[in-house]
Design a protein around this nucleic acid. Structure first.
Lengths: 189, 189
DNA sequence: CCCATTTGCCTAAAGCTATTAGGCAAATGC
DNA sequence: GCATTTGCCTAATAGCTTTAGGCAAATGGG
């Protein structure tokens, strides 16, 4: 019997690809086993259970996305950085919808604390250093940026923008522009 | 054998409650059958399949949310309307997390077109009439509002705001305030 | 009021996923 | 070169989905 050469890493990568193909929610241990050409039970030497698989894919996606964002951010500041951040985010979600969905999996606190999720938070705050915000405004802004970017990508992915003929890229650019203005300007009563 | 008196409506309502209790993703035909005290197969006289059940819950949630938003919006305009809209949205998601998740289910185009989803879109545009936006800016703004509100609620629900001691309600108020300013002011180059 | 039809819920069964237990052969290491 | 570890397999249990077929309760026309 020839061994298949499985490892948790290999399974995670294959799982991520599978997620992109059929959707993260549809990823199953059985399906992954079929994909790599072994019997289902064999995967349980490498994975604890289905949840473990999903968590690994999520961590993988978070790393990958953080790397991309970091690369996009390198040497940029201000609006330039904001736009690069936004685009890296949206592009990743479009190229890898399944992984993007995986990155949004709710992790338990310890796992999350040890994940690339913290790099995401740091990078978001780094962008905001280019603007003149004081605590707690910076926290509000972090939350707002996270919400807009995640929300937009999530709605776009769900096909929510198909009704209007307006190009989603234009809306994206407009939003980034307006957010930049919003962050640059002090409170306008 | 005493009849249980099931109807699609009753099952939808119970399904919505179940979703709030255990999460929309965890809702299953089997679980619903247990909840209403009948055997699983009995539900298939009232539902086509599991997908049908989920779709019904989604449509129900969309209606309910649209009703709430409409009520909140009545007689308001401008920032007042924006804040009422935002709060109705967030409050619903907090009170009924399962139904809120259901409302985000991707529906096929015809179903979506016949759903309360169109009321949501109309109401969002109605709010924006209080601001001075021209097409295509209005579309961009619709998308932005949808993104922020959905994104925020979704991140908050996922526990993404637990790390910082800043009260999510403060951030919410700040965001609504800044969005209002953003929409009131013309492009600031 | 009674019987025929419809309707509602049930049992049975097949197929798929998750997970555990135990076995045999391939790889590894002394 | 052999002992141990490791990797993948078969077998089996359990839950969810869905279809088929059956019996009893509700309904409605004569």
């Amino acid at each position: 019997m020839v061994r298949a050469g499985l490892t948790p890493e290999r399974l995670t990568r294959e799982g991520a690809e599978l997620a992109d193909e059929i959707g993260f929610d549809q990823v199953t241990v059985s399906g992954l086993a079929r994909r790599v050409g072994v019997k289902v039970a064999s995967l349980y030497s490498h994975l604890n259970d289905a949840r473990d698989l999903k968590t690994r894919i999520a961590l993988f996606a978070l790393e990958e996305l953080a790397d991309r964002v970091a690369a996009a951010l390198a040497g940029r500041a201000g609006k330039d950085a904001l736009a690069a951040f936004a685009d890296a985010y949206r592009d990743y979600a479009r190229e890898h919808p399944g992984r993007y969905a995986a990155a949004r999996l709710r992790l338990d606190p310890e796992t999350a604390a040890a994940s690339a999720g913290v790099r995401h938070a740091q990078m978001t705050r780094a962008i905001l250093r280019g603007y003149d915000l004081t605590e707690p405004e910076q926290t509000h802004a972090v939350r707002m940026l996270g919400s807009v970017f995640h929300g937009y990508v999530s709605l776009e992915q769900a096909g929510g923008f198909g009704h209007t003929p307006v190009d989603p890229r234009e809306s994206w650019a407009w939003i980034v522009d307006r957010l930049d203005a919003l962050l640059r300007n002090p409170a306008t009563p």
